[in-house]
Design a protein around this nucleic acid. Structure first.
Lengths: 320, 320
DNA sequence: CTGAAAGCGCTAACAC
DNA sequence: GTGTTAGCGCTTTCAG
């Protein structure tokens, strides 16, 4: 049986309440403090958050729900969130929805059953209907998706604008057969990037729906898709890739095919870190503000728990 | 206030115990079953796992502790674990240690305070001393590291053997200036791979410590390190890369430098998936049995919770 | 098959 | 500053 506050009381000869008070930062006599500390170390006491949470109605835990654990972009954001949250005394529970609405619901229930104080969600679908219905009373921050719910906070990036910028770069380089490689799943983020791409090309009369290719949003997906694209459209001279992993897959394919990027073909893709030194020369990359997304998500959810109103933040991705 | 079992009792006119029984799969009169279901949906009842866990001493949750959330290998394993665990009625809480022993300890405490029924850990350091001391009473499975603890289960891969195999392939291809690119942090897995590499080369009299390069275990790390290697040792004709992300970084660098893999230089690296179609031709890759690792970890931890003894599993990585 | 009552470990009043 | 007590929501005897 685990060691409880009662054991500490017995060990020290003090009452439960005193121990509890000390554990919560209330001052106690200094010699009692010493006794308590000793007992804690001797017995290896670890506070039972279940009992504590049951009483206080707080778990000091934030639930995080992302589509896939193996998506670097998502997990990088989660890492940043955790970094900030730990300084504020919160821990995290991470769940994945596997791009499946019912799993997402199930995960939400799981998180709520764990009494999370707040939720940070990167939803499967673009509307957030399904979310809000489950988590009525739990503060929620939605990242990278615009939902219809207005008791949730939102953190968005200027996907459409930066995509337009990306395609313009390719045009400026003299490219005019510009393809799009994006993910199959029709989600908000990909959609916005697609619209940005499309809008610029339509303005120039260069848009061709046949040059829009979808694949699975991983390295393999990018690899396969770019090969297919170049087989079916060898005239392609510029490619905009909307997902990081797919972008990597594309570059690997280029390498294997012996195509020198910046000569036959120009690329614009997504990069994960501000500090990345790769992709300098011949490639343009969109730098996602992952750190800012994570920081904002963490700070906003804590603010909401402390009673503040939901708010929305628009973050700038940069291209260079 | 959240809706409780009491509210269900009031709504249905039944007693708490009956509701609880139904929720736990005990048969109740079919018309009561209907009433309860209706009340659950109407009120949006979600069971409070804190209260339940406090009573039953079970949280139906496994704590998972990995060095970094943004490492694809780790998160892929976590995904597999989650997949299996959910079929057995367990959820997961994921923490990261950020390669820091004290954070690892802190995370363990966090997980234990959440009353996890078991722990699956990919430890920071190679000895597991620090682990067992914290989690004395919690079943634990350690993955990819051999620790001295024998009340923990272990899941290992044949790192050394497969590394030997990898280097032999390079030698068979006629390479004899074979470099190693590995990560800085001296962890068990890298160590084993290093020993495998070294042993084969020493046997042939080809070992040269100056051709062993360390870098950060991410894409940037691989990119930077291989460039440095080739600058300082332009005679290199074969490279063994011990980490997936670094391997990707290497290939990206090759691409940028216009070096065709399989001609000037041969590579052997780590790949993440069994099904990957990349890296076919000129590259050899070690396929890590990530799915098996995850499945085994999940099954073993549940078995331990059910009272079985710890056990160790050795899994085969394959090269092709 | 169902209801009443006790108690899991902790905190929050409240007396001392 | 410290001890006593009640109760968070649930499960679990034990009667009925």
């Amino acid at each position: 049986m685990a060691v409880t506050i009662k054991d500490l009381a017995k060990e020290t000869g003090l009452g439960c309440a005193t121990i509890s008070a000390y554990l919560n930062g209330v001052p106690v006599r200094s010699y009692n403090k010493v006794k308590i500390e000793e007992a804690i170390n001797k017995l290896g006491y670890i506070r039972n958050e279940y009992a504590r949470g049951l009483k206080t109605r707080k778990s000091h835990t934030i639930g995080i729900l992302i589509p896939e654990l193996k998506n670097i972009i998502s997990t990088t954001i989660v890492g940043e969130i955790e970094e900030v949250l730990r300084t504020k005394g919160y821990g995290i529970i991470v769940c994945e929805s596997r791009m499946d609405i019912s799993r997402q619901q199930e995960a939400m229930r799981f998180l709520i059953s764990k009494m999370v104080d707040g939720l940070i969600v990167l939803p499967v679908s673009s509307d957030g209907e399904d979310l809000q219905s489950v988590a009525e009373n739990v503060p929620m921050t939605v990242i990278c998706r615009q939902t219809s719910s207005d008791n949730a906070s939102h953190i968005l990036i200027n996907n459409r604008e930066v995509s337009q910028e990306a395609v313009k770069r390719l045009i400026d380089k003299g490219r005019n057969r510009i393809a799009l490689i994006t993910d199959d799943s029709q989600v908000y983020m990909s959609g916005e990037r697609y619209f940005g791409y499309r809008q610029v090309l339509e303005e120039k009369g260069l848009f061709n729906q046949k040059m829009v290719y979808g694949g699975s949003s991983d390295i393999d997906g990018g690899y396969i898709t770019v090969k297919k694209l170049l087989r079916e459209h060898p005239e392609t001279d510029g490619i905009f890739v909307t997902h990081y992993e797919m972008f990597i897959g594309c570059i690997l394919a280029m390498s294997e095919m012996g195509i020198k990027i910046g000569e036959e073909i120009d690329f614009v893709g997504i990069d994960t870190a501000d500090k990345s030194i790769i992709f300098d020369s011949a490639l343009h990359t969109i730098k996602l503000p992952l750190k800012e997304i994570g920081e904002n998500a963490a700070e906003i959810i804590v603010a909401m728990i402390d009673g503040e109103h939901p708010r929305s933040v628009l973050l700038d991705a940069k291209i260079d």
